[in-house]
Amino acid sequence: MARYVVIGAGIVGLATAHRLTLDRPGARVTVVDKEPCVAAHQTGHNSGVIHAGVYYKPGSLKATLSRAGSASMVAFAREHGIPVETCGKLIVATAADELPRLTALFERATANGLPVRMLSPAEASEYEPHVSALAAMHVASTGIVDYTAVCEVLARLIADGGGRIRLGAAVTGFRHGVVETSTGDIPADFVINCAGLQSDRIARLAGIRPGARIVPFRGEYYELREDRRHLVNGLIYPVPDPRFPFLGVHLTRMIDGSVHAGPNAVLATAREGYSWRRFSARDLAEVAAFPGMWRLARRHLGYGLTEVRRSLSRPLFARSLARLVPEITEADLVPAEAGVRAQAILPSGELVDDFLIESRDGQVHVLNAPSPAATSSLEIAKHIVAQLGAISPN
């Protein structure tokens, strides 16, 4: 009877453990996480978007698993009574120089086999009456869901399938056939590292030397005051600038009816640094010692300074949103909970732009799984379990 230990009780770890209980009946499946609850970090601070797969290079894991995942996540939510909505989204061009980029994005989305349509300003206003657009692209298969609720269901299904979830158990080391934790040893023939913000550290602890390093970027959000939620019907995104590493602030109607605005992207002062007040000397020292971070910073210095200014200035944040919906003002914004993105960066300073999953005998390490990992989680789980079939146990 094979013994599997999944490290990390976020949505990718839980989806993988659930898939193991389905595909490996009789196996011993254990999930371990240092936190006292599931979905404590990236998953629990997620915007709740079910991404269609618009932005990703055709043929990449992100493109293929996101497209499949947007369908399987909606089906899973409906099967288990989790509120979900396929609301679609608009990607809007607000300036003339964005029009060629919007056309290129339409061509990429079409190459990825997605249901997209180019819209005139009048057609865009039928979806979002308050939007400002020279042109827009409608992505029909984008949706919204509560990913924490998904994790709670996955945790129940794991238990129903004979698996165990050990919370409050930090992984401290590895021996042959054993995962050492702060609450005792766990026998393991196979280890699956889905530790998100700590994934590269877990890999190094297990004897892997990943080429990429996790660097945490905090995404800060506001939400619209309740009496201003009517300004946004669904999801409104800007056209991304390929010169910069992130999408830019956008507007997202959540499954509970609230409307979140953001995120920006600033270097977090701790791996789990959800505010400027959260500080870790160890985490910052690691970032400072990593050449890839300095190369990234030099390449995007102006962009990074703009993000910091937007972090410190609600008026600037509001002006960024007003490019999409001109009626939004600073007075409409209420601070909301931030998230931290676990982004893998190469020594060259390039962001790893696809999911990065490495395996060796007895081990699979998920070393880059930022957005759209929540969307793709059920499909990532299938991918991981397929890899397990090709490697030998510890």
Rank of each mutant, 00 (worst) to 15 (best):
M1K: 15
A2Q: 14
Y4W: 13
G13E: 06
L14P: 00
T21K: 03
L22C: 14
P25Q: 12
R28H: 14
V29K: 02
V31G: 01
V32D: 03
E35K: 13
V54E: 00
P58I: 06
G59H: 11
L61H: 01
T64M: 11
R67E: 06
A68V: 04
A68L: 13
S70V: 09
A75M: 08
A75P: 00
F76L: 05
F76P: 13
F76W: 06
A77C: 14
R78W: 05
G81Q: 06
I82W: 00
I82E: 09
K89R: 09
V92C: 12
A96T: 10
E98F: 00
L105D: 07
E107W: 15
T110Q: 09
T110Y: 11
G113W: 01
M118G: 09
A122G: 08
H130R: 11
L134E: 11
H138D: 00
A140N: 10
T148Q: 11
A155L: 11
G162H: 10
G168L: 12
V171P: 01
F174Y: 12
T181R: 02
D185R: 12
A188H: 10
V191L: 03
I192P: 01
I192C: 02
A195T: 07
A195R: 05
L197C: 14
Q198I: 04
R201W: 08
G207N: 03
G207I: 03
P210S: 01
I214H: 06
I214M: 10
R218H: 06
H230K: 13
H230N: 12
V232K: 05
Y237K: 03
F246V: 02
L247Q: 10
H250K: 08
G257R: 01
S258P: 00
H260N: 12
G262E: 02
V266T: 15
E272L: 06
S275F: 04
S275R: 14
W276V: 14
E286R: 11
E286Y: 07
V287S: 07
G292I: 02
W294H: 14
W294E: 06
R299V: 09
G304V: 13
G304C: 10
L305Q: 10
E307S: 11
R310G: 01
R310K: 14
S320Y: 09
L321P: 04
I328N: 07
T329P: 07
A331I: 10
A331H: 15
P335V: 08
G339W: 02
E350D: 15
L356Y: 14
I357P: 05
S359D: 15
S359R: 09
L367A: 05
P370C: 01
S371D: 08
S376F: 06
A381I: 03
I384L: 13
A390C: 07
P393S: 11
N394A: 14
